[in-house]
Computed example of a mutant assay.
Amino acid sequence: MPKPRRSRAVRPPARAAALPRHGGLAVPWITGWFDGRPYFGVNFPLRRIQCIKYRLCQFCREPLGRRIGLIVRPADIAVGYVDEPAMHPECHDYAVAVCPMLNGSLDHYRAAPPAAVAGLIAVQASRAGKPAEAYEAWYITPSGYEIAYGPDGAVLGIRLDVPVLMKRPVRAAARPRLTDEHAALLRQVLALESSLEGPATS
């Protein structure tokens, strides 16, 4: 497992001055709290929907401006929308700089939080413990901001089949870890290949 990067001190954007701090980091408005601590990467479902519906920045809660930043995964492109709310460019840049999943410090999503937390806030359970995906930064304009709805009218996210000003890679996908079972199987295959080759002849 790669050693976590030591992020240089990054100052939060001025619009984040009112946000609480934890471990020296500004805690995004959308982040879920439980038992007095924030669970970074785990979002309050109501705040997520509010951000998407009312065009609020998920980080600072202020209205979005003329340039809108999205964090996009291949899985989002496949379904045609991103379920994470948008951000201002400066809030977007801060999140990319300090978030260990986005800056490459972590190669796997963390395990699911305690059941008590999962009962209160939205958890991406399907990602828990899995290798980190590739992420891209997309920038759109207000005219390209369209909400994706489900058949029942539920807010799914922000549509991606819209004009995009710019795309840039944020991080590459992480390689899956080799489990003990897979490692044992690999050793068996290598031993079998070695035995089939037979002793070396001069």
Score class of each variant (00 low, 15 high):
Met1Trp: 02
Pro4His: 01
Arg6His: 12
Arg6Tyr: 07
Ser7Gln: 10
Ala9Thr: 12
Ala9Ser: 10
Arg11Cys: 06
Pro12Cys: 01
Pro12Thr: 06
Pro13Phe: 00
Ala14Ile: 03
Ala16Asn: 02
Ala16Ser: 12
Pro28Gln: 06
Trp33Gln: 03
Phe34Glu: 07
Gly36Thr: 10
Gly41Val: 08
Gly41Ala: 09
Val42Phe: 03
Asn43Asp: 13
Phe44Leu: 12
Cys51Tyr: 03
Tyr54Leu: 09
Tyr54Trp: 14
Arg55Gly: 06
Leu56Phe: 04
Gln58His: 12
Gly65Gln: 06
Gly65Asp: 10
Ile68Thr: 01
Ile68Asn: 02
Gly69Tyr: 00
Ile71His: 12
Pro74Phe: 08
Ile77Glu: 13
Gly80Thr: 12
Val82His: 07
Pro85Thr: 08
Ala86Gln: 01
Met87Ala: 14
His88Phe: 11
Pro89Arg: 14
Pro89Tyr: 04
Cys91Ile: 08
His92Pro: 09
Val96Met: 12
Met101His: 10
Gly104Trp: 02
Leu106Cys: 06
His108Met: 05
Pro113Lys: 11
Pro114Leu: 04
Ala118Gln: 15
Ala118Gly: 15
Ala122Lys: 10
Gln124Trp: 07
Ala125Met: 11
Ser126Asp: 13
Arg127Phe: 08
Ala128Asp: 13
Lys130Phe: 02
Ala132Asp: 00
Glu133Asn: 00
Ala134Ile: 11
Glu136Ala: 14
Ile140Tyr: 03
Pro142Asp: 01
Ser143Thr: 13
Tyr145Pro: 13
Tyr145Arg: 00
Ile147Val: 14
Ala148Tyr: 08
Asp152Ala: 15
Asp152Val: 02
Asp152Phe: 09
Asp152Asn: 15
Gly153Leu: 07
Ala154Lys: 12
Gly157Glu: 00
Arg159Lys: 15
Val164Trp: 00
Arg171Val: 03
Ala172His: 11
Thr179Asp: 00
Asp180His: 06
Asp180Phe: 05
Glu181Gln: 05
His182Glu: 13
Ala183Cys: 05
Leu186Asp: 13
Val189Arg: 06
Ala191Val: 06
Glu193Pro: 03
Gly198Gln: 06
Pro199Leu: 14
Thr201His: 09
